[in-house]
Amino acid sequence: MSFFQKMGTGNLLMLILCIAIIIVAEYLFLTGNELHGIFLGLWAPTLLGVMIYLKLVSHERK
């Protein structure tokens, strides 16, 4: 079983979204919109935390 099949489609999409958010936040920060870049950059760890929480809740139900 490959790594991507183990992750699942939902988790893979959320990971790609987090990577895209980080790239956009870096772009905003480096082009002079520091506050917008920081604000957007805080979304990625929040989404990762939600992913971990949902994984723990679903694992606990089993």
Rank of each mutant, 00 (worst) to 15 (best):
S2F: 05
S2P: 07
S2C: 04
F3H: 09
F3T: 11
F4T: 07
F4G: 02
Q5M: 09
Q5L: 11
Q5I: 11
Q5A: 12
Q5H: 14
K6G: 06
M7G: 03
M7A: 14
G8L: 00
G8P: 00
T9S: 13
T9P: 09
T9E: 15
T9I: 12
T9R: 13
G10D: 05
G10M: 06
N11Y: 02
N11A: 11
N11M: 02
N11T: 07
L12D: 03
L12F: 08
L12Q: 07
L13E: 01
M14C: 13
L15M: 07
L15F: 03
L15R: 02
I16S: 05
I16W: 04
L17T: 10
L17C: 07
C18Y: 00
I19V: 11
A20D: 04
A20R: 02
I21Q: 01
I21P: 00
I21A: 02
I21N: 01
I22K: 10
I22G: 02
I22D: 08
I22S: 06
I23Y: 09
I23S: 04
V24K: 11
A25T: 01
A25Y: 00
A25W: 01
Y27C: 08
Y27K: 12
F29Y: 14
L30I: 12
L30G: 09
L30P: 04
T31K: 04
G32T: 01
N33I: 06
N33R: 12
N33G: 05
N33Q: 15
E34L: 11
E34V: 14
E34G: 07
L35F: 12
L35Q: 13
L35G: 10
L35A: 14
H36S: 15
I38M: 08
I38R: 14
I38W: 09
F39T: 14
F39P: 06
L40G: 03
G41K: 00
L42D: 09
L42H: 08
A44M: 03
P45E: 01
T46D: 05
T46N: 07
L48E: 01
L48I: 08
L48Q: 03
L48V: 05
L48Y: 04
G49N: 01
G49C: 02
V50S: 06
V50Q: 06
V50D: 02
M51S: 09
I52V: 15
I52N: 07
Y53S: 04
Y53F: 13
L54R: 10
L54W: 07
L54T: 11
L54N: 13
L54S: 11
L54E: 11
K55Q: 12
K55E: 11
K55A: 13
L56P: 03
L56E: 06
L56C: 09
L56S: 10
L56R: 10
V57R: 14
S58I: 05
S58P: 03
E60V: 13
R61T: 12
R61I: 15
K62G: 10
K62C: 08
K62Y: 15
